[in-house]
Amino acid sequence: MSIVSTKKLTSKQKLWLAAIKIPVYSVSIIPIIVGSSAAFENISTFNFRIFTTFLISSILIIAWINVSNDIFDADTGIDKNKAHSIVNLTKNKSLIFWLSNIFLILGIVGIILISWWQKDLTVLCIVTVCCILGYSYQGPPFRLGYKGLGEIICFITFGPMAVSASYYSQVQHFSIISLASGILIGISTSIILFCSHFHQIEDDFSAGKRSPIVFLGTELGSIVLTIITVLLMFLVLLFPILKILSFWTFLSLLSFPIAYQLVCHVLKYHNQASNVKNSKFIAIKFHFFNGILLSVSLILSKLV
């Protein structure tokens, strides 16, 4: 009897770990690190109080997005077969709704603090627009993610806008360096979302969600993923050549083996849901290391 209970507990713990989506929080952490590193490259100073406040706020906001998305997906029925949906696990959608709102409020309070310290509303305005776009992804009546626009929203919010907001929070002006860095991070973030569609194409189709993979099919989708990944690596080469970013940016090429692993994995298993679902985690790994290497390159361009 105790053995069965232990197995059940272990299984539920795994579902909760999947529901919390800890690896996904790298999409909130990396833009802040990259933007702050770009600011350091520009002025050689670093405001740790603003950085930590922005980092915590970003984590809280992504928690709001993740939790609220489970609520919105429960409304459409797209998550009916998703055992690790927070709504399915708790059976209490109202509680999860208010919890998600608390995350959002606390995250915005942190951004308000930054704006108050700076006597400047720019960062608050950027983050507010990001939150509106984040809501439009799954929230009614927009549900733009159901119309295949999720990757574009991810690119804008977690790329140029998030990186530029982090950069501005340190130096209170904008730069081509933060924009170029944001483009690189935005593409790698969109790759994560793109990969998450392969294994759930049937559920997406039945719920009327026109994700890119529903529109393209898994085979063509795997080819598009290859093209996007090659484009990202090309930009890593191009930006230093054009002197938009320093030659230290070539360090980001060290993430190429992970990119290669991702592309090969999806090309091989694109139509095998049980195997291709791991591609999202490979994409997260690529996003994380690519972002960290970009941050290191920005810091080294000032120190060396």
Rank of each mutant, 00 (worst) to 15 (best):
L300W: 00
G159M: 14
I114R: 00
I30Y: 01
S196I: 09
C195T: 14
I59N: 04
T45Q: 07
L9W: 06
Q170G: 04
V109A: 10
I223W: 12
L294M: 11
S188I: 14
F97R: 05
F72C: 09
N47R: 07
E151R: 07
L232I: 01
A165Y: 02
S37F: 01
L9F: 06
F155P: 04
G77Q: 04
G182F: 08
N290V: 11
T45H: 15
N271Q: 14
L89I: 13
V87I: 04
F97E: 12
L254E: 08
F205L: 11
L225D: 04
L89K: 03
I78R: 06
L121R: 12
L298Y: 00
S44V: 13
I56P: 05
C154H: 14
I32L: 06
L254R: 07
S175M: 12
L294G: 00
N69L: 08
Q13C: 10
L231C: 03
S188G: 00
L303K: 09
K21A: 08
G134T: 04
V4Q: 14
L104M: 15
W117E: 00
I108R: 09
D70W: 02
F256I: 07
L253R: 01
L193W: 13
K91I: 00
S37A: 06
T53I: 15
P23L: 06
D120C: 09
F239W: 02
L303N: 15
S274H: 08
I43R: 12
S206T: 06
I96V: 11
S175P: 10
S11T: 10
N88C: 02
